[in-house]
Simulated assay, not measured.
Amino acid sequence: MEALECGHYLRSIKLLRGEIASFDHYPFSLPVIRNLDCLAFHPRVTFIIGENGTGKSTLLEAIAVAWGFNPEGGTRNFNFATRSSHSQLHQHIRLIRGAKRPRDGFFLRAESFYNLATQIEELGVGDSYGGRSLHEQSHGEAFFATFMNKFRGSGLYILDEPEAALSPMRQMAMIARIHDLVRQHCQFIIATHSPIIIGYPDAAILQITEDSIDTVEYENTEHYIVTKEFINNRKKLLPILLE
């Protein structure tokens, strides 16, 4: 893979531990937060992976809100709340920014995308998302249209489980689009379960466990190991799983 010139927009985050009264309550009781000090990001693409409930989305949401994005998604210009459910973690982290400022940015999260699409329709700004109502498309089509049309160069993009709406083919198309945008000086931070998406090269994979956040190689991720094992040994595994 060729070398790409792209500086950090977001270099790292620091948990302001001295400002937290107690680590006994959510979200500070999550092991990933309780054990967090500083977390550094790759200048181009950082993946955050981990089992359900480990705090990936909570952490990503806090980063996005601290940056100025709406908790339910969109650009920094969006200011709506369908249901206020985000944690207060964003008030207890410090963003360590790079020297360059992004000209664009977007927070895209699968669980609240319907709410975002409704807001886009009410504002009448659908032309920027492909010119077709997002509500007149399938969830996957609308999600992909947003990713393909709204993301531009020199941007910071935070994605929470984008694979939830995308077929395997669309996930591979997403990798290609990510690479196009990286070459246009973009930085991505992505929480995902997809063994396809985390296959993007020259990226950092941060794996959340009960004790820590560690950088891991693609072939050492549970996503890769479990998926490969199932595909290669499906006929042996299914009787065990279904007995």
Rank of each mutant, 00 (worst) to 15 (best):
H139W: 15
R76G: 07
E163I: 06
Y114W: 13
P239N: 06
R103A: 09
G130Y: 13
D37K: 15
Y9P: 00
F78I: 00
L4W: 08
D24V: 03
G131F: 10
V125D: 15
A145P: 07
F28H: 08
L89K: 05
T227P: 02
G18Y: 08
T75Q: 00
L237D: 05
S128N: 15
W67G: 00
L116I: 04
E210H: 11
H25I: 11
E141G: 06
M148I: 04
F143T: 02
P31T: 10
S128G: 15
A165C: 07
I231N: 08
D24S: 15
F147N: 01
Y200D: 05
G105V: 01
L156M: 03
L206A: 06
V182Q: 11
F80G: 08
W67Q: 01
G68P: 13
L242N: 14
I49L: 12
D160H: 04
S138H: 11
N77Y: 07
G55S: 03
F80M: 06
A81R: 10
H193E: 05
N115C: 08
K236Y: 08
E219A: 14
Y114S: 14
L30N: 11
H86E: 12
Q184G: 00
I175V: 14
I33K: 04
L166P: 13
E122S: 12
Q207C: 11
I33Q: 06
D180P: 02
K150M: 12
L241W: 11
S22I: 04
N149G: 05
R109S: 03
G7Q: 08
E141T: 12
K228N: 12
G50N: 05
A142P: 01
